[in-house]
Design a binder for these strands. Sequence first.
DNA 1: GTCTATAAACTGATAGAC
DNA 2: GTCTATCAGTTTATAGAC
Lengths: 190, 190
Amino acid sequence: MSRSSPTRDRILDVAQRLTQERGFNAFSYLDIGTQLGIRNASIHYHFPSKAELGLALVRRYREWLQDILTGLDAEPSPRRRLDRYVDSYREVVHDDGRICLCTVLTAEDAALPAGMREEIQAFFDLNERWLGGVLQAGIAAGELRVTGARELAAASLLATLEGAMLLARAARDASRFTQLARAAVADLYA
Amino acid sequence: MSRSSPTRDRILDVAQRLTQERGFNAFSYLDIGTQLGIRNASIHYHFPSKAELGLALVRRYREWLQDILTGLDAEPSPRRRLDRYVDSYREVVHDDGRICLCTVLTAEDAALPAGMREEIQAFFDLNERWLGGVLQAGIAAGELRVTGARELAAASLLATLEGAMLLARAARDASRFTQLARAAVADLYA
DNA sequence: GTCTATAAACTGATAGAC
DNA sequence: GTCTATCAGTTTATAGAC
């Protein structure tokens, strides 16, 4: 377990926003320090290297998702769980152009520090496994309907959501994500 | 019209590959020069600034797509046009992890030089418009079937293809793109 | 924990010889 | 067109004072 502190959390908050906007390789410790009102050297106290910052960033993001999914599991209806899941991603897509952290990071792939890649893959795996479970429950309950394999349908929905974020950003129109996400989910309604 | 030269083309080739692998902000003129066996200063003769290189890069990519689409329009059957379209993207997704240039660039959005964004948006618009036309023709011919608006279905397919590239890269498995792309197209068969 | 100061490396870019 | 030489700015990172 990594230690927690207010400043450490704020550094991660700023780093996450900057990564979502520009990518991991297009911001510096100076950028973070400026926004936080501290010197860039101070950030090295919390994260000795940028690789460690990146690792902490993607780990925290995955934990955020895990908490979301755990919360969603309390919803009684699979169909409602699916709707709420998409709502969560809609909150990630901002009008200022921010999109899913791991979507951005995957695009930079070969330029990322060692270790981050495995975390990113784990993030997508978590999404797919959870979605697969919801589809299974939804089909059993007669609320959802899938053509082809359940795992494929889960991956397909995830792919559509990721791509929808990129299209929304390219079009400078966050509502495009909502539109595409809604249509993708509606396709799964029984 | 920008002038063409063998070296200029090779520079763009290397720059495109590097961008597809790492993103636009994670490679330098030195990286290009090393791979080409020339000094980084020489690259400035062909592209005075990296912003101009980036602009030429995405413009050439869009022209490449335009040529592909024009070629596809010769195919008599809408369904076959759609299949061949997806085949073209499958050739963009390599086992070494390369994916669509504009997918990568969209992820870096806020960190791109002025002008590139408009070209990227035009690239996606071109895809969507062309797909919309194919769907329209396919529906008229009774070869394809769409639930909901035609434009939405076109955007949805494009989003799925883009997201599939990212998932394939994250999983280090290019065949995942093929699998997801095939399923997405099959959904449109009448 | 944050600061100043600084190092070492890299980056985009220019001047001018060949 | 490509080269050598060079610059100014930035980036990651460390040492040591407070």
